[in-house]
Structures are given as structure tokens and as C-alpha cells.
Write a protein that binds this DNA or RNA. Structure first.
Length: 412
RNA sequence: GCGUCGGUGGCAGAGUGGUCAAUUGCAUCAGACUGUAAAUCUGACGGACAUCGUCCUACGCAGGUUCAAAUCCUGCCCGGCGCA
């Protein structure tokens, strides 16, 4: 009897654009995740600035950590000796680990270039600098990259101490087995939105070969096979036909669920997800990697996404921005110095219920770490509960109205 | 009173004849952030017009030397230290 399951509860009405949205429940050895759900990012085995108790207060169900970062610090052996990620970080709920594939992008093509997963206008398409597959260290370093991609895997130069480390699909899976998260990901290459079509294709085919190797590596560990679910990652970048191809290829592989990774055009997000999710098996969960603005959550959910993770709520919190039902506000702005109102009366987060904007503004200005904590608690509450509210609206048949009302207010 | 060192933009502190509206840090005012190189990064920061830019007013105060002064000289004011 498997310790895992995914059950779809209710689907969106077919009249609705996309019509792929659904609610469901993912069961794991560490508990259930009611979907759609927002999974909080805790890269190094900690959601920055928050204790697990504070996390629970926000309503978060599950945490996603990172294989590459935990491999570098403290090392997967330490986490394993501690009894696995859950015990080590004192988090009882379901956990995930990303494979390190995103670091191929963030430490490679994107390194020092201010490139994000979303394509911006005027970016150089096909610039050699944006191609991570530079096959020797000197050239890679001269281009300011910390990783080199080849057919077998990726060689990283540690951003911490410059030491060299080799990641292959097999190694990533091995580390993820040691870390022991409930849901783990195949090792992929997250490509840059600036990469040209030829490179996207080359990387896509390689990622598919790595997907196959990831499955093989997973199946060779009988214990892990029992205790951990392995998700494949759909790539294809900005090319819709590649997205389609990727979904088709990976659907035929024996994954427990799917992540959708890589870069997008903001305007094309709905279309990309629709193409992919129309192909991915309906009975398996779909995770959208690294995306989580409020508008993206609606788009993702109505196009068939079950779970999301994103650093935005916690990252912008640490730099002084908080979500409100009318958009984000920057607490550093002068006007909040004497604003003793709550962050948002309509959002009953711990922070919003107990502290004023002026207090948060003071904490940030005086560089007190409590500011980061309170703002993170608020932002996670906001995003996590937005997804919960969307879930509820689907269950109640009110999705369209809920979306319209929320977005009208949010952008007013 | 004598001697000595020093007074630079909100603060600290560079500069010691032209490349200085003046390095840098902090503060301030904004902006960015989407599988976390991130308690980070970017921009503005004398004034007025304002596209590169142009014109004013500026390095304690007042004079002077010089083609040219935050930088040199004289006097004054203020502060630290030492001696009376």
C-alpha cells in the first residue's frame, strides 16, 4: 500500500477558459496537502526569518528546500544523520526538494546578469553569454558563470568558497534520497529566457535524457521508492512547441507527478500551461516551479496547476514590501512612518492583527530583524490563504466571481 | 594670552592650485525582486531649467594672489590639545 496518493476532488466548470483547474489532496508520509496549494520555499532547510511555529501560524502546509544548497551546506550526510529534512529543521509537514536544476540557470546563464525566469523585453536572444553549455572552466569563468553543462551533468563552482562540485542526474537523486524529502525532482536544466531556439532544443533533449536517468536512479533505491515521490520537470522555455513536446515525452515516463519549470513570457503563461497540462496525465499532481504572484496563481490554477512554490513572498518581505488586498506596499516609504493603521484590516495575519505599518516601518528603517519576520509572516499568510480561498471558490463553484473581485481590488 | 592642529554638502570623512558641484560610507528619497549568489540589488541625493546638458550658489567669514583657489596669503570668528 503506497504511502502516497493524489485524489482530484472537484474540477472547474468546463465553460471556464482553460477549464483545467481542480481541487485535490496529495497524501504523503508527512501528511496531506490540500490543493491547489502554495508551497513555501526554504532553500537551506529554513524559511528565512521564520521558525516552524511561525510558519504554521501562516497556514503553510508544506516546505520546499534545495538540493544544491543543502549539499554545499551542511552536506546531505549531516541532514541524513539528523534523521532527514523534517527532523533536522523541525518541520512535521510534507517537504519537497528541488533538484539543483534551477542553479544551472541562476549560477550559470543568469549569474550576474539580472535575468529572471520571466522574459523581459530587449533581452539578447542567443547571446553566447547566456548559454551555460560552455565546455571548459576557464571560458565559463571568463564569462562569469559558476557552472558548466555537458551531456553527463553539470560542474558547479561553489558560490561560497569556489570549490568544484559535480552534479549528474544520478548524484542529484542520490543527494535527494539522503535529504529525505517527501517529493523530489528530476535533475533538469532550467534554461534562460535569452537562450535561442536551437539552444532550448538542445537543452530540452538533454533534460529528457536526464529525466530518464533520474527515474532509473530513483528505482534503484527501494527504500526511497517507498518513501519518496519523484516528479519530472517539463521544460521548453518560451517555445510552445517545445513545451508540448516536453509534456508528451515526460508523460510517457513513470513519474509520480510533474513540475513545470523554465522561463515564460508573462503574457504567454496561460497558454504555456494550458498546452502542457492538457497533455500531462490528469491523475498526477502538477507543480509550477518558482512562480507565485497573485495573478500568476489564478492563471496557474485555472490552467491546471495543483501546487506552486515561489520565493517572492518571503524575499520581498525581507526588503520591506508587503501584500495588501490592493497590491503591494513598500514599508520604507516615508508615508508609512506615521501610519498607525494595520497592514490590511481585511487580512487577518498575525502581523496585520497585532502591529501597525508605522511599527513595521520603524523595524525596517532601524534594520531590526523582527521586521523581516513579521513581514514574512504576513506575506506568506496572504499568498497561502489566497490559494486556499481560490480552492474554496472552486469547491463552491464561485471561481470566476472570486477571481474577478480579487483582481479588481488588487489592481485598483 | 601664547603655541599648535583643525573648521568640506544632513552626519562622518577624503581631497590640499586646474581633470571639483567635490571620492567614499552612513542617513535620506524612490525603484526592483517569480524552482533564494538575496536582512539583497539599482537609481537619485546644493538649486533652477532639464535629452547629452546649461546656468546659478557653494568647501567657517571677509579680503587678496593667480589666467585659474576647497586647495596659496592676510585678518577675523569658532573648536581640540599643550603651556601660562
Amino acid at each position: 500500500m503506497s504511502k502516497f496518493s493524489f485524489d482530484v476532488e472537484k474540477k472547474l466548470d468546463t465553460e471556464i477558459s482553460g477549464a483545467l483547474g481542480r481541487t485535490g489532496v496529495i497524501s504523503t508520509p508527512h501528511g496531506e496537502i490540500e490543493t491547489p496549494a502554495f508551497i513555501v520555499v526554504g532553500t537551506k532547510g529554513t524559511v528565512k526569518a521564520l521558525t516552524p511555529e511561525q510558519l504554521l501560524e501562516t497556514g503553510v502546509q508544506s516546505v520546499l528546500a534545495n538540493t544544491y544548497h543543502l549539499f554545499l551546506q551542511p552536506g546531505e550526510d549531516v541532514v541524513q544523520k539528523a534523521g532527514g529534512l523534517n527532523t533536522f529543521m523541525n518541520w512535521d509537514g510534507p517537504t519537497w526538494t528541488d533538484s539543483g536544476g534551477f542553479q544551472v540557470f541562476s549560477l550559470g546563464a543568469a549569474f550576474g546578469k539580472g535575468i529572471s525566469k520571466f522574459a523581459k523585453e530587449k533581452e539578447n536572444v542567443g547571446d553566447i553569454d547566456t548559454r551555460p553549455n560552455i565546455y571548459n572552466k576557464e571560458l565559463a569563468q571568463s564569462h562569469g558563470k559558476l557552472c558548466i553543462v555537458d551531456e553527463e551533468g553539470v560542474t558547479f563552482t561553489s558560490h561560497i568558497d569556489g570549490s568544484m562540485h559535480r552534479f549528474t542526474p544520478e548524484r542529484s537523486i542520490e543527494i535527494q534520497h539522503a535529504l529525505g524529502a517527501d517529493i523530489i525532482f528530476a535533475f533538469d536544466e532550467c534554461t534562460s529566457p535569452t537562450a535561442d531556439r536551437a539552444y532550448q532544443k538542445e537543452a530540452l533533449d538533454r533534460t529528457h535524457r536526464w529525466a530518464k536517468r533520474s527515474i532509473l536512479a530513483h528505482k534503484q533505491n527501494y527504500k526511497a521508492l517507498e518513501e519518496q515521490w519523484l516528479f519530472g520537470i517539463v521544460q521548453g522555455g518560451l517555445e510552445q512547441d517545445f513545451r508540448k513536446e516536453s509534456a508528451e515525452v515526460l508523460s510517457k515516463m513513470d513519474f509520480d507527478g510533474y513540475g513545470i519549470g523554465g522561463c515564460f513570457n508573462k503574457e504567454g503563461l496561460d497558454e504555456s500551461l494550458k498546452i502542457v497540462n492538457n497533455i500531462l496525465p490528469e491523475e498526477k499532481p502538477r507543480h509550477l516551479l518558482g512562480i507565485g504572484e497573485p495573478i500568476d496563481l489564478f492563471i496557474g490554477i485555472e490552467n491546471g496547476i495543483d501546487t506552486f512554490d515561489c520565493v517572492t513572498p518571503t524575499r520581498i518581505a525581507r526588503t520591506g514590501s508587503v501584500y495588501t488586498s490592493r497590491g503591494t506596499i513598500n514599508l520604507f516609504n516615508e508615508k508609512y512612518k506615521n501610519d498607525f493603521s494595520s497592514i490590511d484590516e481585511t487580512i487577518p495575519s498575525y502581523t496585520s492583527k497585532n502591529y501597525s505599518r508605522a511599527y513595521l516601518a520603524h523595524l525596517f528603517r532601524s534594520n531590526e530583524i523582527l521586521g523581516a519576520t513579521l513581514a514574512s509572516m504576513h506575506n506568506l499568510y496572504f499568498i497561502v490563504n489566497l490559494v486556499k480561498d481560490i480552492r474554496k471558490s472552486i469547491l463552491e463553484g464561485q471561481f470566476v466571481e472570486f477571481k474577478a473581485n480579487f483582481l479588481r481590488e488588487y489592481y485598483s
